[in-house]
Amino acid sequence: MTMSSVASVCVMALLTFQGVYADEWNVTYPSESICVVVGDSVDMSCSYTYPPEVTIKQAYWTKLDSGDHPDLRGDPQYRDRIVITQYATKQCDLRIRSVTLLDAGKYYCSFTTHTEGQQWIGKPGVDLHVRDAPHIPSVSISPSGDIVEGTDVTLTCKNRSDLPVQSYNWYKRVNTTHLHLGTGNPYTIKDIAPEDNGEYFCRSGYEFGNKYSCTVRLQVFSEEKSSIMAAVIPVFVCGPLALLTVVFLLRRKCLKGVLAKRDEQDASGNIRGNPDTILMIPVHPSQNPNTSQPDAVYQSLNPNTTQPDAVYQSLNPNTTQPDAVYQSLNPNTTQPDASAHE
């Protein structure tokens, strides 16, 4: 293999060991630039050749192109996240899991030989680009609310990522399959019909992958059902209010009847006010209802049916005659004849 042919298919080695020519060393990188998002895994690979006089002790990957070219497996940043595999077919692979923004940079295949202190590195290596992971897109429906048959409905795929979106694709879920509807954003369904009912979602395509939205459900109503719903909703809202109004009016009417009957009884001479309060009025022994006629009971209890003199005569001492009060108590008021007679 000549120098020109090697240069066309591989990357030449930087260093030449004593007694070894540069055209006998070469490294090939299948991909010299890779782009991934945060959290993903990435694979890199290199294949190499070396002079027959040289024995390769170890092939590994490094991130430094100068100095001692340390093995990534000894770096705390990568120790638990990488796997390096060396094959007998003169190939060495690197896998990095859970990529972070700090992982961006150049990676190189490097070799050590059985000759102490001899190292060899192949350039230009692999350039790793790391981007923030895009967010899951969402889908909005316009117009909002009930979708009536015959209208145009627009679906919009919304992305919150700063990464450029290269393509949009729309799908409808049909049983266990996904029916591809079209591309572009937004996506419009013309003259929608009941058979368009179902779940829809979008796919946002990026340079290094795709993101799918959650599904949204589209419910189409016919014009007749839409009119029925418009009539039923006021009934559900106004029905309870009407029932409460009827109950209030009936109660008010009943209350008026009770009051009217009470007024009628009051007009005919029945007891007014609170019966409990009236029954607490002291009753003179002569007004005991057990010894009087029914007419006399009400006559003694109802102030409207008794004469003022009769009420106060037995209760108010101011209404009795002085002679009657003191005659039995005051000795000065007794008759001389009665005293002498004794």
Rank of each mutant, 00 (worst) to 15 (best):
V220K: 01
K261C: 07
P51Y: 08
P275F: 01
P164I: 08
T306H: 06
L64Y: 09
A13Y: 03
V297G: 04
Y78S: 02
D23V: 08
G257L: 01
A338L: 13
G122E: 10
G122H: 04
R262K: 09
Y187C: 09
T62F: 04
L315N: 01
T55G: 07
R262P: 00
T113L: 08
P30W: 03
T319K: 05
T49V: 05
C214N: 13
I228F: 01
V139W: 04
T291L: 11
S8A: 13
H284F: 11
T85L: 15
Y200C: 02
Y78V: 06
V246F: 06
D162M: 15
T306D: 05
L241M: 02
A7N: 04
R160K: 13
G239I: 11
A22E: 05
V37D: 04
Q86W: 03
M280R: 08
Y50R: 11
T85Q: 15
D323N: 03
E223S: 05
L181Q: 11
T183D: 15
N185D: 14
Y29V: 02
R97T: 07
V232C: 01
Q287D: 15
S339M: 15
Y50G: 06
P134R: 09
M1L: 08
C157F: 13
L179Q: 15
F208M: 14
H69K: 13
L102P: 00
T62S: 11
V9T: 04
Q91S: 12
S226N: 06
D93H: 12
P164L: 12
I84R: 14
E207R: 09
K63E: 14
H178C: 08
Q293I: 03
V174Q: 08
Y206G: 02
F208C: 12
W170T: 07
R81Q: 11
T115S: 14
S31R: 00
P234S: 04
V99T: 14
D43F: 07
Y29L: 04
I147H: 10
P143I: 15
L241A: 02
Q287L: 13
E264F: 13
F111T: 03
V258M: 02
C238E: 05
S66R: 14
R73F: 11
P30L: 05
D43Q: 06
R262Y: 02
T183S: 15
P317N: 06
Y87N: 13
T16L: 11
Y206W: 08
D40W: 10
P52Q: 13
V220G: 00
D75K: 09
G205M: 13
K256S: 14
E149M: 09
G273I: 06
A340Q: 10
T320N: 14
W25T: 06
A13Q: 05
I192S: 10
L250Y: 02
T245I: 02
I82N: 13
M12Y: 00
V237D: 07
P186S: 12
I233D: 05
V9K: 05
S138L: 08
D276G: 02
G39W: 01
G39Y: 00
R131W: 09
K90T: 11
S4P: 00
E195T: 09
V216P: 01
V38E: 13
T319R: 03
L315F: 06
S8L: 12
H284W: 11
F201E: 07
K57H: 09
Y87P: 06
Y78A: 03
E223T: 07
S66L: 14
V148N: 11
G150M: 00
T291E: 05
L315A: 06
T2P: 00
L315Q: 04
D71A: 15
L250C: 06
